[in-house]
Design a protein around this nucleic acid. Structure first.
Lengths: 245, 245
DNA sequence: TCAATGCATATGTCTGGACAATCTGACTAC
DNA sequence: GTAGTCAGATTGTCCAGACATATGCATTGA
């Protein structure tokens, strides 16, 4: 069947982006069935009144997302597998919200402390200089799910306790004009200490999932250092990986 | 300082790739210092005798890797942060080897079994149909580090015990002509059972790091389903994330 | 029967331009 | 002095082609 594609040249949305969105919708919707060929680029460009580079740019963006596979001499195929979303720089809050769980946050600590050696190294600030320290308990359906301890360099954003309880840290940062760029993560496990067990309603010695993360903005500045502990019976890290060709 | 860039038009290596490699090397080597502007694309193209799209393609590939940031009206900047490598579809074997540890593998089980419901669903094969089952103990410096249980659909590759002990599963697959494309992973934690504790030289009830993974090739076929348990005192998952703009 | 050759097809690479959108900084007007 | 305006610089988007190269299939040859 011929796909119903069209572009609006009067729109400020780039043409390649209009096309890639329509193709992605068609894949998502099942109009483009997995394994089917997309039809060659030249003909597609002619049909839409676009140039081949523009069509290629649209296709390439979907290849990067893992939705399409190109084969020279063959064509462009729709990957047929349950590709969800590749791993994003997401916050636990957003994860929970999209999963339909209603996340709640209880701010335990929201203060300014001198940076320890570890925090100073992670954030790239001087030792003993002031940094924000935020500790939060994240709940889902009223049950504790994770304990989040974060350090934030001063002057980046207002850390209002009420705001911290109503949304996630990443969302606050983005709305403060910070462009998140990359993060370095480490995921491990260890036995709960007595204090941790108490906070998360677990037993001492119970296995906990741990995550440490340093987040950088697009200037390379560290904007956040976090040490999180999760209840493994309530949470696990799920993500999709793509090979870089 | 002016960067020493050049391209070899007689080489079969694409021009944009030659350029991106030289730029990456310069960044890695410190010749291009973090935060410095790259100089505008037009002038760079003229200096190298290339067209602007070619130069843009080279730069774009480094932007995708997170090494550069473009800003309209400003220029292209070298990100200054310890960007290592974004998360790749890597095997534990390769990870250990590049970390300088000498990995060893002991194949515990290498047989063919009927697929359980869980395995059949993950691999997309019929329940009770034959699949390979491989169980391996991965050691580093003679110490057990992880217990790997994998299921592989039949007919994909020869599962030779000697080969499994001398290299990793992913490497075997790649050399069998399989093009790995994506994987769906889940990382969690739980307490060790008596049997698991014994295999990994831990105590019963000790926290273990767990990973489940289904790997797909570029046709969307599932080529491997694995259930791994790691000793959290010896191993953690470390990776770099990039935001997709 | 099976292997080698050749051809059509599709993507990969590259060119040389054009105009638009955005950011920075300097200049001007109040 | 401050705010608004404008010009220059730079990347973003787009075009119309050209040739290279890998793939799959049909044809040809042994």
């Amino acid at each position: 069947m011929t796909l119903d594609l069209s572009v609006d040249r009067s729109s400020p949305v780039p043409l390649y982006f209009q096309l890639s969105q329509q193709l992605e919708a068609a894949i998502e919707h099942g109009t483009l069935t997995p394994g089917s060929l997309l039809g060659n680029e030249i003909e597609l460009a002619a049909r839409l009144g676009l140039s081949r580079p523009t069509v290629r740019q649209a296709i390439q963006s979907l290849v990067d997302k893992g939705l399409l596979v190109r084969r020279r001499g063959v064509g462009t195929q729709v990957v047929h597998s349950q590709v969800k979303r590749p791993l994003e720089l997401s916050s636990l809050y957003d994860d929970l919200e999209t999963a339909g769980q209603r996340p709640a946050t209880k701010v335990i600590v929201n203060t300014v402390v001198p940076a320890s050696a570890e925090v100073a190294a992670a954030l790239g600030v001087a030792e003993d200089s002031d940094v924000h320290r935020v500790e939060r308990l994240r709940l889902a359906h009223g049950e504790p799910m994770a304990y989040l301890c974060n350090f934030i360099p001063p002057g980046l954003l207002d850390l209002d306790t009420a705001q911290l309880e109503s949304t996630g840290l990443y969302r606050l940062m983005r709305s403060a004009g910070i462009t998140l760029h990359s993060a370095r993560q480490s995921i491990g496990a260890r036995a709960a200490t007595a204090a941790e067990a108490e906070r998360l309603a677990e037993e001492e010695g119970a296995p906990l999932l741990t995550m440490q993360r340093v987040t950088f903005d697009d200037t390379g500045r560290a904007v956040e250092f976090g040490t999180h502990t999760y209840r493994p019976t309530r949470y696990s890290f799920e993500f999709q990986l793509l090979v870089r060709p």
